[in-house]
């Protein structure tokens, strides 16, 4: 018989449920501490970034969101300049807001690499909840969420993005942000080791 070994994976000691002291149950000291905390914040510089006029057009110049930020969508193109999308409806199926509308059709005869493509691809960004499931569902990595965070527009029609608009955004963001890909290995300056150490 081998000697009994201690549990090789000890459970983390659970914090004991301790009864509150009289002063704690009075709440007032804690309330005062809370008030002190908010009082300090009252005079802090706000985090808000003030951008106007020209800067508003490309706010990314002002502030680059962290990797993984989910902003407006864009579509990518393949090497031939065609839309990468194969109209498989996976994004539409995954979409919890049902804001992606696709119509599929057989490809023109000169597209040799595949047989179906979207004749219509619309995202209703008014309904979109920016969950990013479409990006995860896409089997050909055609749709992605850009870091664009200024989502305002003047009319409702502007927020229904069609294929051309999404592809144009893809050119704008996909290329200009080639150094800012939303993969852990693609984050500028982030080595795998640094990634590992970061929480």
């Amino acid at each position: 018989m081998t000697a009994q070994t201690p549990n090789p994976t000890p459970q983390s000691p659970r914090k004991e449920q301790r009864t509150l002291t009289w002063a704690e149950r009075l709440y007032l000291p804690e309330v005062l501490r809370g008030l002190r905390n908010t009082w300090r914040h009252l005079f802090r510089k706000p985090f808000t970034i003030d951008y106007d006029g020209t800067e508003r057009a490309s706010p990314l110049k002002y502030h680059t969101p962290r990797p993984g930020y989910r902003g407006e969508h864009y579509l990518k193109k393949d090497e031939d300049g065609h839309v990468k999308c194969v109209a498989c409806f996976m994004c539409a199926a995954a979409c919890p807001a049902e804001c992606i509308h696709i119509e599929a059709a057989p490809t023109p005869p000169d597209w040799k690499d595949r047989e179906r493509y979207p004749v219509r691809f619309e995202i209703d960004l008014l309904r979109c909840i920016y969950c990013g499931y479409c990006e995860e569902a896409c089997p050909v990595d055609a749709i992605a969420l850009s870091p664009t965070y200024n989502l305002c527009s003047v009319t409702r029609e502007e927020k229904i993005y069609n294929c051309e608009k999404l592809l144009a955004d893809g050119e704008r963001y996909g290329l200009s942000l080639s150094t800012h890909r939303y993969r852990p290995d693609g984050v500028p300056g982030a080595t795998p080791a640094a990634q590992g150490s970061a929480h």
């Binding site: 908010t38 914040h41 005079f43």
Partner: peptide, 10 residues
């Protein structure tokens, strides 16, 4: 305004 300042907003 106060709520904004307390929350570090504008």
């Amino acid at each position: 305004k106060i709520s904004a300042f307390i929350q570090d907003r504008v």
